[in-house]
């Protein structure tokens, strides 16, 4: 338990589950300031984690080949004992979902060497292309549910379901009551998920905006009255 983690983790506010969060409990700027407590080598791992999180948010216009190429550059950086257990699962989720989407669109089975996805399952999935769940339900029991959402076109439910899977995974790998670098990285990961969810939740964003505007107008109201 290196010393820097204890103060840092104790100084981070509680992150509620992304579906229950009404706002970010800590701003990006303040989070970055707090991360300044880390040793330089740990901070460098945080930077790598940020690169991974950025990779996950590729623009829609970017092709699969570009994604794979970007991942190959990133892979060397995230294959670290502190990072890989956290990031392997989201990568697998992404790969399986890519396979499900591809099959749903009626695209052919990926050819060997074709840059269609990343991660350790990328070669195995095409081998079981005909099976609805790729014979992987023992490893990924969530595939049937995700497939149902995808077939039904329930995009929001699917997104919530997948994000919740990843959230649970991150909490399992690095519980919040521990004081380790992984807990710090897990916090950043979850913070990013909360931010992403809030940004997508237009209703909550609109309500927050209304509150802010009302607060400002209320303060200045008497001046103009």
């Amino acid at each position: 338990m290196p010393h820097a983690y204890v103060t840092l983790i104790a100084s981070l506010p509680h992150l509620p589950h992304f579906t229950r969060a009404e706002r970010l409990p800590i701003s990006r700027k303040r989070l970055r300031e707090r991360l300044g407590m880390l040793h330089p080598e740990d901070f460098e791992l945080v930077q790598r984690a940020s690169q991974f999180l950025a990779w996950q948010r590729q623009p829609v216009a970017r092709s699969d080949a570009d994604m794979v190429a970007a991942y190959r550059k990133l892979h060397v950086l995230i294959e670290h004992p502190s990072l890989w257990p956290l990031f392997e699962f989201p990568i697998n989720v992404r790969t399986v979902m890519a396979a499900l989407r591809r099959r749903q669109r009626g695209l052919p089975r990926p050819q060997r060497g074709e840059p269609w996805a990343v991660g350790p399952w990328v070669d195995r999935l095409p081998r079981h292309w005909e099976h609805p769940d790729f014979h992987l339900t023992a490893v990924f029991p969530w595939i049937p549910q995700a497939r149902e959402y995808l077939t039904a076109g329930a995009a929001l439910e699917l997104e919530r379901f997948l994000m919740d899977l990843i959230w649970q995974h991150v909490e399992r790998v690095a519980p919040g009551y521990e004081f380790s670098l992984q807990t710090v990285l897990a916090y950043i990961f979850k913070w990013d998920m909360v931010q992403l969810w809030l940004a997508r939740n237009a209703a909550a964003a609109s309500q927050r905006f209304e509150e802010l505007v009302t607060g400002v107008l209320h303060d200045f109201g008497p001046i103009f009255a």
């Binding site: 010393h3 204890v6 103060t7 983790i9 104790a10 100084s11 707090r34 004081f179």
Partner: peptide, 14 residues
């Protein structure tokens, strides 16, 4: 005490 104290300092920040 040092470890618990560090956690206390972190909590005071927040």
């Amino acid at each position: 005490c040092a470890r618990a104290g560090q956690a206390a300092c972190g909590a005071i920040l927040e």
